[in-house]
Design a binder for these strands. Structure first.
Ligand SMILES: [Zn+2]
Ligand SMILES: [Zn+2]
Ligand SMILES: [Zn+2]
Ligand SMILES: [Zn+2]
Lengths: 164, 164
DNA sequence: TCGATGGCTGTTATCATATAACAATTCCCT
DNA sequence: AGGGAATTGTTATATGATAACAGCCATCGA
């Protein structure tokens, strides 16, 4: 399993079906270990979230589901699936966009930190950066017990800067 | 003008009316310089945002306005005021809470980074930490042009950890 | 002082996101 | 097969934010 393609640069043309199948395979494993059930619905929602490297809103997912099925599911259906996927680290929620994006490394639990391009809307998840240590240091100094970190950096990706 | 009380520890009992009047005075100055009009409504909304060190939702502010006046203003009224205040750096929006909080240092434009206690709901704005440099370094390395930073760290403040 | 101009506020309606509550179904284990 | 728990369906509603247009008011030049 190789997720490096999607992590390095989701802009560059790449075999995205590989991203999707890697993500689904990783999800199977994570759920297996956790004794959780990756049901057909949950798997489907995860697959839809992975349709691109752009965060998608719950209602976008609902629309897509409605187009595939003939019966349009109600919001709780997709929100529950998203809740499950979040709990198991398979997707991250982007608070500043009210949207969700697949996680390429769900094996180890971690906070999602993102660079989000306002132009192409691609979100790149950061891993192993100095941001987490910096947060830990500040929190330590303030006696604050961190439970979750929302780090969403908006701007223009390298690709879109060139275009402009 | 001394804002250190509110910055050091908003939990500790402190002369909060001083926080409010400092904030309003700073706001007057900022608007003066920018040639912007701090109208009665905008000032009132800013004052309401500053009623505590907790982020408040737009509809909370509307409720308070409704209680003070006899006529309940409509949502756009308060959202427009909040937009103005944000543009001039007088309040920050907390994306993870859909809420707003006053900024104690609006003189220099900056990103709001926060520690947010899930128990007492107090939000402490961080300044001059290693977080911003860490973000800048990562962005630089990725060729990403940062335009805004959302950093919201949730957990338990020192005060609430003791209580528990 | 008058009226034009642009910025601010009021008002109505609507959109967008998310959840509560309860019913029906399905899965899993015995 | 039967019981209990987890999952999904369904309806209604809560919560947060904005579009569109109308009216008002401060400011400034004529
Ligand atoms: Zn891909
Ligand atoms: Zn881009
Ligand atoms: Zn205070
Ligand atoms: Zn606290």
């Amino acid at each position: 399993m190789n997720t490096s393609v999607s992590l390095e640069d989701p802009h560059c043309p790449h075999d995205h079906s590989q991203c999707v199948s890697d993500a689904l395979a990783a999800a199977e494993q994570v759920c297996e270990r956790a004794g959780a059930r990756l049901t057909a619905l949950r798997k489907r929602v995860l697959e839809l979230v992975w349709q691109s490297h752009r965060p998608l809103g719950a209602y976008d997912l609902l629309d897509t589901l409605a187009r595939e099925d003939d019966r349009r599911p109600a919001p709780p259906t997709v929100y529950r699936a998203l809740d499950f996927l979040q709990e198991h680290g398979l997707v991250h929620r982007i608070a500043s966009l009210n949207a969700f994006i697949g996680c390429a490394s769900p094996e180890h639990t971690h906070q999602g930190h993102f660079l989000i391009c306002r132009n192409c809307r691609v979100a790149i998840e950061l891993e192993q950066t100095l941001i987490h240590p910096a947060i830990a240091e500040v929190a330590q100094r303030m006696g604050f017990a961190v439970e979750s970190e929302t780090v969403e950096i908006a701007g223009l990706c390298a690709h879109c800067q060139e275009a402009a």
